[in-house]
Amino acid sequence: MGQATPRLLRPPPPTTEPFAVKWALIGTAVLFMLLFLVMPLAAVLSEAFSRGIGTYWAAITDPYTLKSVRLTLLVAAISVPLNVAFGMTAAWAIAKFEFVGKSVLITLIDLPFSVSPVIAGLIYVLMFGAQGWIGPWLIDHDIRIVFAVPGLIVATTFVTFPFVAREMIPLMQDQGTDEEEAAILLGASGWQTFWRVTLPNAKWALLYGVLLCNARAMGEFGAVAVVSGHVRGVTTTMPLQIEMLYNEYKFAASFAVASLLALLAVVTLVVKATLEWRFGEELAAVHRAPGGKV
């Protein structure tokens, strides 16, 4: 690098853009985000508080709203762990082994991303509905899936199916198998290897997958709407409660509940930022870890 040149004459560092370009890029990105993300969020909040804080508070403490919050939490509390278990096992099989048909398997895991929520709901009605294939049997045994809580859980699980696996597979693939092989050769069991070697390395992807999966699970509307039956206070999750209030022309109340879900995105952000701040060093170490991509 050598001797100092007068400040004004110094060209910009070769690994970044000139000052003007940099701020033009930042400006464009921020403008886009303002237009497409901040404005809708602002619209939600401004509608939510349009009738004052009193209406807002009344809306989110309404007994039916509270029931819908409880139901949403329940649905997420069941479908997210299921998808975490799936995501971890699938990632282990896919990332640590080479086998025929892997691309097809990954594609099938991706598929729920692109299946229209209407279809996602429809397939469960076709299966478990009274006119469906196993529906009549279920009804004879008094087991209710669609138009009851289990249906909401199954539909949500479908929609959020890929998130954890999708986050973990690429990272675990990148990290290769050297560390695990070393652990096994040193006498660790497969279980120990997974918990002590693989998981600590992949915990960021896991965490991130859980956050996204959870956010999507709580916000899912289309698929849940098809299997819910819309029974007030019994099968209405938060997104359905929002729709219901909106259809009753209670716009402020409807957006108040929506703002709770928007808040979820903010909480997600705070959790992520805090963890990155606390474990930032570790994170960087993982990225540079030997055995990683060369």
């Binding site: 969020l41 956010a215 879900l261």
Partner: peptide, 28 residues
Amino acid sequence: PGRRVIDGLVDLPFALPTAVAGIALATL
């Protein structure tokens, strides 16, 4: 300034129920 906020907002379309997004966009 505001980088972290923007970073978090990227996930908003995941969390916001799609119907709410539609209504908010229609309002705008």
